[in-house]
Amino acid sequence: MTQTDVPAGAETVVALRDVQKWFGDLHVLKDINLSVERGEVVVVIGPSGSGKSTLCRTINRLEPIDSGTIEVAGEPLPAEGKDLAMLRAEVGMVFQSFNLFAHKTILDNVTLGPIKVRKTDKVTAREEALQLLDRVGIRSQADKLPAELSGGQQQRAAIARALAMHPKLMLFDEPTSALDPEMINEVLDVMTDLAQSGMTMIVVTHEMGFARRVADRVVFMSDGEIMEEATPEEFFTNPVTDRAKDFLAKILQH
């Protein structure tokens, strides 16, 4: 189920305006304008080094920007400090390398944020965490350490950890790129369920099948610029720019 028809009067969850970022002399984000409505699933694709991960990381300010504005839920991103921490609590993030807290059990990974940031009591946090672990299919692994789980299980735990904060938005930064092929689908399935439940999502990925099936909108980036923005149907059947055609030709050949 996709949600191409965003209901009228829907709220904008993320708005980037004229965002610029440099790494030294390298202009990694050029005039980025992008807005994401509530319930929308936006998939960002593009060749390596095109700035799509950086774009994703600017939205919760893991990467600061040099100019332009980013608003989340109508509020501009605060500077480093308590306010930023509060904002990050509203934005779930899933990383390529999972980044589960290596010294804590899966359950403790999921409950840490609710207990310490949301001040949820421990019993409630634990119950919710177990429900979430059940939802992503790894409830039986709750008491293990991250290193004892497979990559796919770790990434599903990381999704549960992000969901435990009841985020308004989920960012996925190449969530399946570090996984063995046989584990990719178990993670994509969880993400598909999440999209169908109405979660607002920005997904940076190389999984074209997922983009086709789940995205409301595909954003194609190259050399730090957004080259195309279209429905998956339009983008995959009728890419406009040469760079998009070239990119699709390279990845869809096999």
């Binding site: 919760n60 921490a85 980044n99 944020g113």
Partner: peptide, 21 residues
């Protein structure tokens, strides 16, 4: 790994919390 601190910040822990926990 750097990702540990990034994940801690991403769930809304402050610098002191992520350092301590």
């Amino acid at each position: 790994p750097l990702g540990q601190a990034e994940a801690a910040r991403a769930i809304g822990l402050t610098f002191m919390q992520s350092a301590r926990m």
